[in-house]
């Protein structure tokens, strides 16, 4: 078998030091995706740094900002009382992801780091620019029913598979990254990347950096919200299209809106222009329909995923309608 080293540490600094020194070392937390990738020969790290014992499992509210440790499991986060009260949209997004068994093991940081489910990425005999830059994109001209309609490039049309991240990008989360040089904080929306000419890079994490926590500022979006995931079966299926929607409504007028989509792009797809459009508008079906139309600007199908050009706006309308109906 392909031998690799397995190192466990409970000290963040040690973990960071190990990865910064070694170009073939990588962190492992829940391993729900990484182990699959290793089994399929997609990746072959020479050293795994087990970070499950690092002290990154806290969820706490500090100065109106929720701090979430990167090693909090998806299920623990979904069941957390603060999350349920303050960010129920995130709870719904988490529960829409994977299966109960996977959510018990998968971590917040790992969820952000999971790789696309594109079949060409997983089959090492087929072309894939993400797995092997320069080998071509199998999905363009091939099976692309699950693939992106926004922000695609001629090199890659894969989608980011996470539900949690769709909720987080809608909630203006920030990501705290640590390296041996110290910590830095970036907006969640800037964490994941579009494929562009470098589809092998899913995100802007630098070599040697570790996601240590998320921070989400408290907002008033916990009354009218919905996460709607459209998929091929009721559970344990990736999104065809998903929508995270949250509204603040006063006297039937929208004063604040958040809207993001999953299953449509190489990153969680925040729709800030549409949010701006919604502000000040009446919370009516007509408004939602116009918003959905606006959201589709620049969308492009690749054949088998053309249906998303219809499904995506419909899902936005339904998600906004259900968000409005919630209170």
């Amino acid at each position: 078998m392909i031998n690799f080293q397995f190192v466990r540490t409970s000290v963040i600094k040690t973990a960071l030091g190990l990865v910064s020194k070694d170009s073939k070392a990588t962190f492992i937390a829940g391993g729900t995706n990484l182990v699959d990738l290793m089994k399929r020969g997609v990746t072959a790290p020479e050293k795994l740094i087990d970070i499950n014992h690092l002290p990154l499992k806290q969820i706490e509210l500090k100065n109106n900002v929720l701090h979430i440790g990167a090693l909090v499991s998806n299920s623990a986060l979904a069941e957390n009382q603060l999350v349920k009260e303050k960010f129920p949209l995130l709870m719904l997004a988490l529960k829409a992801g994977a299966s109960a068994q996977l959510r018990n093991v998968a971590t917040v940081g790992g969820n952000m780091m999971q790789r696309t489910r594109c079949g060409y990425f997983y089959d090492t005999t087929m072309p894939c620019n993400k797995r092997q830059p320069g080998s071509g994109c199998g999905a363009i001209g091939g099976y692309n029913r699950m693939h992106a309609i926004f922000g695609t490039s001629e090199f890659c049309i894969a989608v980011h598979p996470s539900d949690m991240c769709v909720g987080l990008v809608a909630l203006d989360a920030q990501v705290v990254l640590a390296s041996i040089k110290g910590e830095r904080k970036i907006n969640f929306i800037d964490f994941h990347r579009l494929a562009g000419t470098t589809p092998e890079k899913d995100n802007n994490l630098q070599k040697g950096e570790l996601i240590v926590r998320l921070e989400i500022p408290i907002n008033n979006l916990n009354k009218n919200f919905h996460y709607l995931k459209v998929r091929d079966r009721t559970s344990y299926a990736f999104a065809l299209v998903s929508v995270a929607a949250a509204l603040e409504i006063n006297n039937n007028t929208i004063s604040n809106a958040r809207l993001a989509m999953g299953g449509v792009a190489h990153k969680p797809w925040r729709l800030q222009l549409v949010e701006e459009f919604l502000k000040g508008k009446p919370a009516t079906t007509a408004t939602f329909e116009e918003a959905a139309k606006l959201a589709m600007n620049g969308a492009k199908g690749f054949g088998e995923n053309d249906f998303k050009l219809k499904l995506a706006p419909n899902t936005i309308i339904e998600a906004l309608t259900l968000a409005k109906a919630k209170a």
């Binding site: 079949g119 060409y120 997983y122 005999t125 087929m126 199998g138 001209g141 091939g142 099976y143 344990y236």
Partner: peptide
């Protein structure tokens, strides 16, 4: 995928 003659969803997730 008829270009390659290979299945693209050959696992229980897909």
């Amino acid at each position: 995928d008829n270009r390659y003659g290979r299945y693209v969803n050959n696992n229980f997730a897909d």
